[in-house]
Design a protein around this nucleic acid. Structure first.
Length: 490
RNA sequence: GCGGAUGUAGUUCAAUGGUAGAACGAAAGCUUCCCAAGCUUUAGACAAGGGUUCGAUCCCCUUUACCCGCUCCA
């Protein structure tokens, strides 16, 4: 049985299927496209919304100790100084065109001889070279000076004889480039430096800065969580794999505030919860796993971390990170804002700075996972068939209704049924082409159920209900249609 | 950002230095039609910009996008 999944072209197939069926389009396509940005079409937006709704339902609605919020994308610039993003998202990078190696300039300088460093300083200062407190300051100054004159930095480094540690020779350096992973924009119409703001690189900080607002108004006690869904932006150097890594993406994040001594326990709990959520979407369990991070891959704010990963044909890839962030974030925001962000525990009469366990998932990644996992090609009576075996809970269209013939009152009966279904399910009426063609169209859209009105309908008020995965049909009474669909979605 | 490959209807592919064809798909219609059947009709493309040329979809340059590697993450 032919299966595209085995020959490693699933993403290309999904990209064209997505466009054909109206799941995902390339952004600004008529202008030649905009790099790594994608638009969700009529079917895509339904699937995406169903994923988000199920997350919200599971994380917020169904839990008494998790509440939601929705912060603005634009936040005070100090937020990102406190979070460490201004510092950590500012890498000065150079490439050696010869060896194809890329270096952070400050790290590269550490590997140079004194003579090379001195050469650089001489070329950068027309007058006297100032004294530096230490090497670190010296290197940072060189980086700053070079980045002021980016267009001549390549020449300056070559003339000073900056060595590529990989080749032990003077590198064919590109100009220095500051890779600022945060999108910068301006608040207000005048683009002066005093009004620089960032598009948030994560939704989490909107939760941290609102910690006390939310806690006090919702009257939550430790431990409790705050959840948020929203767009985030990162100027990634490398994007790709369709919608897997993009510069604009949507996050589903929850920050769980707890007593620091319990953080480890909650990390384990939430990791399991999140893995189970992905399983509940009908995703193949053999392709899902929970992977603990090694100590070398932990972020600066985190002491322990799990990834929920899915096995794409391009390898195991992260869908969600569950991290013990300790008291890092609230601590930093206290420092930078000068405001106290502690929780007052009335039982022990003490102020406590809570620790945080974060669950951070990518909506678009969940979307791609669901799509990739649901994609099958099988055969029905010798004919190849493309089918998305989406969970009925997620499918953009839940039920499609067809008249077998375009006469004998069948279209009218079918329309009546579909109108009745619309109030409860995402429904679709189709009378175009042969009945077989209509079934296949819905198979590609992932519609789990098809209702067909035929000659018998006018005699005994029954219709057929077709199952997408088995293509088997059973005959049910028109009055039972709603309940039958309901039963099958559970 | 660097290297490699690619860009022709919605999709998958042809052809050509003299202005583009098909298959499938889409729309309308016919056919008592249960798994992409048949017939009729219709709409629909050379990624963008420059250059060479009498003439460029084709040759050259630039840009842009997508894919595969190098790095990071949701």
């Amino acid at each position: 049985m032919a299966n595209i999944k085995s020959d490693g072209t699933i993403l290309e197939t999904l990209t064209s299927l997505s466009k054909q069926r109206g799941f995902v389009f390339q952004s600004s396509e008529i202008y030649g496209g905009l790099g790594s940005t994608w638009d969700y079409g009529p079917l895509g937006v339904e699937l995406k919304r169903n994923i988000k709704n199920r997350w919200w339902q599971e994380m917020v609605t169904a839990r008494e100790n998790v509440v939601g919020m929705d912060a603005a994308i634009l936040m005070h610039p100090r937020t990102w100084e406190a979070s460490g993003h201004v510092e950590n998202f500012h890498d000065p990078l150079v490439d050696n065109k010869e060896s194809k190696k890329r270096y952070r300039l400050d790290h590269l300088l550490e590997d140079q001889t004194d003579e090379v460093v001195q050469n650089l300083l001489t070329s950068l200062y027309v007058e006297t070279i100032p004294d530096f407190a230490n090497d670190e300051e010296k290197y940072q100054t060189i980086v700053a000076k070079l980045s002021e004159n980016e267009s001549t930095s390549s020449e300056a480094m070559k003339q000073a004889g900056v060595i590529d540690p990989h080749t032990k020779k003077v590198g064919d350096w590109t100009d220095l480039r500051q890779f600022n992973l945060m999108f910068k924009t301006h608040m207000g119409p005048v683009a002066d430096s005093g009004s620089v703001v960032y598009l948030r690189p994560e939704t989490a900080q909107g939760i941290f800065v609102n910690f006390l607002n939310v806690q006090s108004t919702s009257r939550q006690k430790l431990p409790f969580g705050i959840a948020q869904l929203g767009k985030a932006f990162r100027n990634e150097i490398t994007t790709g794999n369709f919608i897997f890594r993009t510069r604009e993406f949507e996050q589903m994040e929850m920050e769980f505030f707890c007593y620091p001594e319990d953080a480890r326990k909650w990390l384990e709990y939430w990791s399991q919860e999140r893995l189970n959520w992905f399983k509940s979407l009908g995703i193949n369990e053999d392709k899902l796993r929970l992977r603990p991070h090694g100590s070398d891959e932990l972020a600066h704010y985190s002491s322990a971390c799990y990834d929920v990963e899915y096995k794409f044909d391009f390898g195991w890839s992260e869908l969600e990170g569950i991290a013990d962030r300790g008291t890092f974030d609230l601590d930093k925001h206290q420092q930078f804002s000068g405001k106290r962000l502690t929780y007052f525990d009335t039982t022990i009469n003490k102020h406590i700075l809570p620790a945080v366990v974060e669950t951070s998932a990518g909506v678009d990644r969940a979307f791609l996972t669901v799509l990739a996992d649901a994609f099958y090609e099988d055969e029905v009576e010798g004919e190849k068939r493309t089918v998305l075996r989406l969970s009925p809970k997620l499918a953009p269209i839940t039920v499609a209704v067809f008249p077998l013939f375009n006469k004998l009152g069948q279209p009218e009966m079918a329309k009546k049924i579909v109108e009745d279904l619309r109030g409860e399910f995402s429904s679709f009426f189709d009378s175009g082409g042969s009945i077989g063609r209509r079934y296949r169209r819905q198979d590609e859209a992932g519609t789990p159920f098809g209702i067909t009105v035929d000659h018998q309908t006018s005699e005994d008020n029954t219709v057929t209900l077709r199952d997408r995965d088995t293509t088997k049909q059973e005959r049910i009474s028109v009055d039972q249609v709603k309940q039958s669909v309901r039963d099958r979605i559970k």
